[in-house]
């Protein structure tokens, strides 16, 4: 399979992957009992948490939508698409680093569903990082 075909498929999957992360993210407040937990914060910090989370979801929707809608621009390596790909790849790479270096396994809720969910999410972060940063590296080779 040629690299063009590989990135063609990978970009479609990356776009869809963002909406999978969205699906998982929407479950977090319920599964991690945010209502009880966030009640312990000051009123301002509680609101800040909701605003941060809401905007983070919005950004994930943006990344997914732009990848699917402008799939061919990403594949062709349009400069703004490459700039965006570099950022999205870096964004998920940082997320991955934080997961291994900052989040602690012991802090995660116990249960098979959480372990499976965590593994699936990490795999998706790796796939997104490789797809977007790989795309940038691939196009830079042609310069």
């Amino acid at each position: 399979m040629s690299l063009t075909r590989a990135f063609d498929i990978a970009l479609w999957l990356a776009g869809i992957g963002h909406f999978c992360i969205l699906g998982a993210s929407l479950q977090i407040p319920f599964r991690f009992h945010w209502k009880d937990e966030l009640a312990k914060l000051s009123r301002f910090n509680r609101k800040l948490m909701w605003v941060y989370s809401g905007f983070t979801l919005y950004v994930i929707i943006t990344f997914g939508t732009l990848t699917l809608r402008f799939h061919s621009e990403f594949l062709r390596g349009e400069p703004i698409a490459l700039g965006l790909a570099l950022f999205i790849g870096g964004f998920w790479f940082i997320r991955l680093i934080l997961d291994f270096a900052y989040y602690k396994n012991a802090d995660w809720p116990k249960g098979v569903s959480f372990v499976v969910g965590h593994i699936l999410l990490d795999s998706l972060f790796v796939a997104l990082t490789v797809t977007y940063l790989g795309l940038v590296i691939w196009h830079l080779d042609f310069l």
């Binding site: 991690f32 937990e37 964004f91 997320r95 802090d107």
Partner: peptide, 21 residues
């Protein structure tokens, strides 16, 4: 953040890093 569970604390900090990025 000392009042909430470690995971909530970590999510809060990670989201604030996200927004800055």
């Amino acid at each position: 953040l000392a009042k909430v569970s470690p995971l909530i604390r970590q999510i809060f900090i990670v989201h604030s890093i996200y927004i800055t990025l």
